[in-house]
Amino acid sequence: MILKQLSVFVENKEGRMKDITQVLKDSGINIKTLSLADTTEYGMLRLIVSDPDLAKAKLREAGFPVSITDVLAVKADDRIGFLHDMLLKLDANITSIEYMYTLPTEEGPVVILKVANPAEVEKVLENI
């Protein structure tokens, strides 16, 4: 499944994360999962939320540089070697992963992948 992920540029400043969660909370938006990539000067907060479009509008209003990115969500089997099998398939199709994190759901974990061509990769990964 292809999901809309919210990406927010965050400066390394005290209290900046809290400013973001404040906006989301006030807008009634639920955070499903997140990943935070950091460098020495800034961070990139990636979020899967209940209403990405509304979240984008609200965060933009609050002055954050924000964008929506298509990411691929792949349901993970809870077994030894699943991730390895998935990576083997991607490797065979010469697909590189920009970043990856997980989303817990009631039906078990889901792997979120950023790849250049999510729709094609989704087909490749249909039967792992």
Binding site: Q5, S7, F9, A37, T39, M44, P65, V66, S67, E98
Partner: peptide
């Protein structure tokens, strides 16, 4: 200032 027009969510691109 980071501008939404050239904004990328990949650290690599920002670097």
């Amino acid at each position: 200032e980071v501008d939404e027009k050239f904004f990328s969510d990949e650290i690599k691109e920002l670097e």
